[in-house]
């Protein structure tokens, strides 16, 4: 089953219910990106940015890092330190 369900009708007779129906646009994005990978890094509106493996924009990761509590930040710092040390010793 598709992860997206399109709302059947975006015309809502009850004025006191606001309908937001974006299914067709997300389907289009899915189709287009499958046919032709996006070029976000080449856009003049974006700085050249690398993407992490789970397909999050790098600025999103940086924002997440900024919000980490101190204990988690220390843990991340240690893990990154270990990774950089490994990379240095292996010549990468």
């Amino acid at each position: 089953m598709s992860k997206r369900q399109t709302l059947v009708n975006s015309v809502e007779p009850n004025r006191h219910i606001l309908v937001k129906d974006d299914g067709d646009l997300f389907s289009l994005v899915q189709r287009l990106t499958a046919e032709q990978p996006p070029i976000e890094a080449e856009s003049p509106l974006w700085r050249r940015e690398s993407w992490v493996q789970i397909e999050l924009p790098f600025p999103f990761l940086l924002t997440t890092v900024e919000r980490l509590p101190l204990d988690k930040a220390r843990l991340l710092h240690r893990r990154l330190g270990d990774r950089l040390a490994t990379a240095a010793t292996s010549g990468l």
């Binding site: 369900q5 975006s10 219910i17 299914g23």
Partner: peptide, 13 residues
């Protein structure tokens, strides 16, 4: 919250 494709917001009368 809604679905991955949209949502409905109820406006108080």
């Amino acid at each position: 919250s809604g679905t991955a494709a949209g949502l409905r917001l109820i406006v108080p009368s």
